[in-house]
């Protein structure tokens, strides 16, 4: 067991963990942050995407011990004071989700994308989301949602 201390969605937490514990499992199983989900075992799907010290990572591809001392933001910490993040709003407004399983990761990656590139082109959005798989939407409305969140409107 290794002692780790970190901040998750603004709360300080401290636990003894096995080194093999993945960050996503720590979030889900120890902290009850089940908003972050596991969709694959090869780090292709991106459903588990969270922010680690401000940038997006796949939390299945980080050990919990590697997050010691870090600041983690999950989908559950994205809204502030009950106000949805603009990307969350845009996903709802543009119907950028259906079953919703990829959605936490898709939103977290979209936020990261816009942090780095506030006015992306459609191509930049598509490339920026290449690490996140969705099986329901065909991506069309996800791209619209990111465009809308970036203040670039969202043609149908």
């Amino acid at each position: 067991m290794t002692r780790i201390s970190l901040t998750v969605d603004g709360a300080r937490v401290s636990d003894d963990v096995e080194p093999r514990l993945l960050l996503v499992q720590y979030l889900r199983e120890r902290l009850g942050k089940t908003g972050t989900v596991i969709g694959c075992d090869t780090s292709n799907c991106g459903a588990c995407t969270v922010h680690l010290n401000g940038t997006s990572v796949k939390s299945c591809n980080v050990l919990a011990v590697q997050a010691d001392g870090a600041e983690v933001t999950t989908i559950e910490g994205l809204a502030t004071n009950g106000q949805l993040h603009p990307v969350q709003e845009a996903f709802r407004e543009c119907h950028g989700l259906q079953c919703g399983f990829c959605t936490p990761g898709m939103i977290m990656q979209s936020v990261d994308l816009l942090n780095n590139n506030p006015k992306p082109t459609e191509e930049e959005i598509r490339l920026g989301l290449e690490g996140n798989l969705c099986r329901c939407t065909g991506y069309h409305n996800i791209v619209r949602a990111v465009q809308q969140a970036s203040g670039q409107g969202a043609p149908a």
Partner: peptide, 11 residues
């Protein structure tokens, strides 16, 4: 630029 994906490029 096109190595893996954004999340993997971060890590």
């Amino acid at each position: 630029e096109h190595l893996a994906d954004a999340q993997i490029r971060h890590r």
